[in-house]
C-alpha cells in the first residue's frame, strides 16, 4: 500500500469515528423527542446507545485524537485546521454523554424540604395536591411542583416513595 492510499484510509477512518461519536449521542435525542411517537425498537436502540455512551464517546475521542496525531505531520495548514475541527464532534459527544438534557429543562429537586400544613402560604386552597399517608405520616405534593420536577423523592412513614406526575 502506498503512502497516499494509506493516508486516504486514515482520513476515512477519522471521518467514520467522528460520525459514529456524533450519531451515538444524537440518535437517542432524535428518537426520544417529546412530540414524536416512539416505537419499542427505537427506544431499545436509544437505551443501548445511552447506556454505553459514557464509555463509547471517550473511546471515539481517543481514537480520533490518535488519527489526528498520525495525520498531522506532512499536512498543509488548512488540512490541520480541518483536523482540529474534526475533533469538535467527539469532544462535544463526550461532554453530552455526561449530561441529562431532560433535566436541563426540568431541574430536579436536589433536596426535598417540607413545611407543616398550617404554616403553608405557597399553595392556594383550590390548587390540587397529590396526597399520601403511610403510618400516620401525611404528605401533600402540590401538582404544580410535581408537573415541573416530574420526580420527587421522599420517605413517608418509613416507606421510600417516589412521587411522580
Amino acid at each position: 500500500m502506498n503512502t497516499k492510499t494509506k493516508r486516504r484510509l486514515l482520513w476515512l477512518a477519522l471521518l467514520a469515528v467522528v460520525v459514529a461519536a456524533f450519531a451515538w449521542v444524537f440518535v437517542p435525542v432524535w428518537t426520544i423527542q417529546p412530540f414524536k411517537a416512539q416505537t419499542p425498537g427505537g427506544l431499545n436502540l436509544s437505551y443501548t446507545l445511552r447506556s454505553w455512551s459514557t464509555v463509547a464517546t471517550p473511546v471515539a475521542l481517543a481514537l480520533a485524537a490518535l488519527l489526528v496525531v498520525v495525520l498531522w505531520r506532512g499536512t498543509r495548514w488548512w488540512m490541520k485546521v480541518a483536523l482540529v475541527l474534526l475533533l469538535v464532534p467527539p469532544v462535544a459527544a463526550t461532554w453530552f454523554s455526561r449530561q441529562n438534557h431532560f433535566e436541563w429543562m426540568f431541574k430536579p429537586l436536589a433536596q426535598s424540604a417540607y413545611v407543616a400544613a398550617d404554616k403553608v402560604d405557597f399553595v392556594g386552597d383550590e390548587e390540587m395536591v397529590l396526597a399520601v399517608e403511610v403510618n400516620g405520616d401525611a404528605v401533600a405534593y402540590p401538582v404544580r411542583q410535581l408537573a415541573y420536577h416530574h420526580v420527587v423523592e421522599d420517605t413517608v412513614g418509613g416507606l421510600p416513595v417516589v412521587s411522580t406526575y
Binding site: 417540607y114 407543616a116 400544613a117 403553608v120 396526597a131 405520616d137 401525611a138
Partner: peptide
C-alpha cells in the same frame, strides 16, 4: 387535604 390532615407536611417549592 389540609382540613383532613391538619398535622400533615407539604412539599416546599424549590
Amino acid at each position: 387535604w389540609r382540613r383532613e390532615r391538619p398535622q400533615g407536611r407539604v412539599l416546599r417549592p424549590s
